[in-house]
């Protein structure tokens, strides 16, 4: 089976995000009100071959742990869905 995997990498809670803060500061001048807690992160997507969803998730999470996110400053969340094999 193939899975479409999306990994979101964001800064750990409590770690400042100057990029998010800068975006948030400019919002009132564009007429957007009531938007808070803007955080900027990174999105990594890929396709993964695995026997099943459990294995796909395990491999994707190991990849996050070893490469895609640095646990000192970042956290990663994994979303995945089977890829439809179209004839």
């Amino acid at each position: 089976m193939r899975f479409a995997v999306t990994v979101e990498v964001t800064g750990l809670e409590g770690i400042s995000d100057p990029e998010g803060q800068t975006i948030e500061r400019v919002l009132p001048s564009l007429g957007f009100a009531g938007i808070e807690q803007v955080r900027v992160g990174k999105l990594v997507s890929f396709e993964l071959a695995a026997a099943g969803e459990e294995e796909a998730r395990r491999v994707a999470e190991e990849l996050c742990h070893r490469l895609l996110a640095n646990p000192v400053m970042e956290k990663a969340s994994v979303r995945l869905a089977p890829v439809r094999e179209n004839a």
Partner: peptide, 17 residues
């Protein structure tokens, strides 16, 4: 060296971007 775990901590983008 920090990414390799040979030194502690990490180096993030400069505070002033």
């Amino acid at each position: 060296l920090t990414e390799a775990g040979l030194l502690e901590g990490a180096l993030r983008p400069n505070a002033g971007r």
